[in-house]
Design a protein around this nucleic acid. Structure first.
Lengths: 162, 162
DNA sequence: ACAGTTTGGTTGACAGTTCAACAACCACGG
DNA sequence: CCGTGGTTGTTGAACTGTCAACCAAACTGT
């Protein structure tokens, strides 16, 4: 990008390049496979599934739009579109927020809960089939730890929930 | 999905769940950050960048559409659209294939080569900043090995190139 | 009280992806 | 030959995500 002699580019070694490509290629194919299987078996996209999971983990199955967006690392507008579509399917509903009149509370409907309950087993099985059970427990743990480090570094240590 | 008593669901343990979420969240944020930085600094999407990388690695900077699609794990139609756009930008060009009249050879133009050369350093730096240099060499190697295993399992051992 | 700024959320136009249908070509067995 | 089936690549419509503009409500300082 800049000059040539002053700022020498620090290339990747051959091993690093191999690892990087394995990571990128493996992750891309893994997520694609999971997305595809979930879609086939339940009609849900992984994003919709994740929305339902996050909502299901709160006491009242409700979250503010902004919290949901942060949790999922999605843009606000993307979440708005997703939630609108899910609302049309009857999976969630939106209510104005009492404490903050700007806010919107997103709640899981009973139908949304049942859809999630029905979808979870096959999705978990997919994750096992293609990731968890393919690796040794040590490999899988190392994978999780490494990516947690990456995540913390990217979010500046904040955004603790995922 | 099926019965309840016969097919008991094998849930993830709490640790497995944590690792899985770290992996998914970390990978999503990492790829998003890399995509964003590459876009900002070079005007290229990561997909376009990968296309150029793959082409640059062949002797004549040319690949059949199908090989390119397999390498990138993209659908045929997706690649067609991508290549059409890149062709409009003058980064690649398409020529009918002599040996197989169905085929299309995709070649990198000189401009495409120069765009790649200009883009590579900052992209490599991004990968270092957010992934390689954040982990220990052992962690990074373990990451690569694990995802290579996942990739091989998903592609049935075939598709050796990535 | 009130202008200025920040935050929460939505909207619409645009860009990129998916999916199904299609056309052209190869390869192989009658 | 001819036809059948599989492969290669493209197309257009529908869908999803991105981006910038926007409104409304909440803070902030005077």
């Amino acid at each position: 990008m800049t000059s040539d002699t002053s700022t020498e580019v620090q290339w990747l070694t051959a091993e690093q390049q191999t690892h990087w490509r394995s990571f990128r290629g493996g992750a891309a194919r893994l997520f694609a496979a999971l997305e595809h299987e979930l879609e086939q078996q339940t009609g849900l996209s992984t994003h919709e599934y994740e929305v339902l999971v996050r909502l299901s983990e709160t006491p009242d199955r409700t979250l503010r739009m902004a919290q949901l967006a942060d949790n999922l690392a999605h843009s606000r507008s993307r979440l708005t579109h997703t939630i609108r579509r899910m609302e049309e399917q009857g999976l969630v509903s939106r209510l104005p927020c009492v404490e903050d009149a700007r806010g919107v509370n997103c709640t899981m409907t009973e139908k949304g809960w049942q859809v999630l309950v029905a979808a979870a087993p096959s999705h978990v099985q997919s994750v096992r089939d293609h990731l968890v059970d393919v690796l040794t427990p040590e490999q899988f743990a190392a994978l999780g730890d490494a990516m947690e480090t990456v995540r913390l570094h990217l979010t500046g240590g904040a955004c603790h929930v995922e």
